[in-house]
């Protein structure tokens, strides 16, 4: 979903850059609470994995492909503030080193993937976690639901920006419908990859998973009950 230069007009691109900069500044403040001996390595690993995974476009039919956006994945593994920073770092490197995603569109891409994607994924993950049974095996499915929803929501956000500052005279409803329907399909791939990765990390090191912390807080009590005669 990397927006190239030219899709949106200059005022819209500048406005999204301002919003993105504000979001990144908030994320830098927000990480003050989150950075510890677990999230610090996880944040770097999440950024690296998302860069790698975004190189793999998977087919979603009719000559169209999609790749992981990684917002929900990063938020569940490292927390939403570090996720926003990780996605921002990935998008900056992609734009400047790999010519993927426009440079004037960098703010737009950070807004869509680093803020809308991450925070939609995180909030839906939290909501799904409340509905699912309170156990570790619920973390991956809840993350998958967050991932599934985050992609079409980010796509709808692009359509919203296109409505404001699109550089071509195309009916907005057509853009919105096409963006959301294709990205719902891509969202299924996003959900599968997110479930696989989060499930794998939960299986080996659940304590490293930011989104699993509320569950682990209650666990020592259960262990003590089992061990004490």
């Amino acid at each position: 979903m990397h927006v190239p230069d030219g899709f949106l007009d200059a005022p819209t691109s500048i406005a999204t850059a301002v919003v993105a900069a504000g979001g990144v500044a908030a994320a830098i403040r927000g990480t003050r609470r989150d950075l510890d001996e677990r999230t610090t390595p996880m944040a770097g690993l999440v950024a690296v994995f998302i860069f790698a995974a975004q190189m793999i476009n998977f087919p979603v039919g009719a000559g169209t492909s999609g790749h992981l956006l990684g917002g929900a994945l990063a938020a569940v593994l490292a927390g939403p503030w570090l996720a926003t920073l990780a996605l921002t770092v990935v998008l900056i490197l992609q734009a400047f080193l790999f010519a993927d995603g426009g440079i004037t569109a960098l703010g737009t891409n950070v807004l869509l993937m680093g803020l809308v994607g991450v925070w939609t994924g995180w909030l839906v993950f939290r909501a799904a976690s409340h509905l699912l049974p309170r156990r570790l095996t619920s973390v991956a499915p809840a993350a998958a639901i967050g991932a599934l929803v985050s992609v079409p929501v980010a796509a709808a956000a692009f359509a919203g920006l296109f409505a404001i500052g699109g550089q071509a005279d195309i009916p907005v409803v057509a853009v919105l419908t096409a963006m959301v329907s294709w990205h719902l399909l891509i969202g299924i791939g996003e959900a599968l990859i997110t479930a696989l990765v989060v499930g794998s990390v939960v299986a080996v090191r659940p304590d490293l998973v930011y989104g699993a912390r509320p569950l682990l807080g209650a666990r020592p009590l259960e262990i003590r009950q089992g061990v004490t005669p």
């Binding site: 990397h2 030219g6 899709f7 190189m55 979603v60 492909s65 010519a99 071509a168 963006m179």
Partner: peptide, 24 residues
Amino acid sequence: ASSSPDGLEHVAETTGFHQSAETH
């Protein structure tokens, strides 16, 4: 990896705003 256009590129092509993309 699939070399097909991604979701956004596909939508830009089918709805007709792909020509507004500028050289990177």
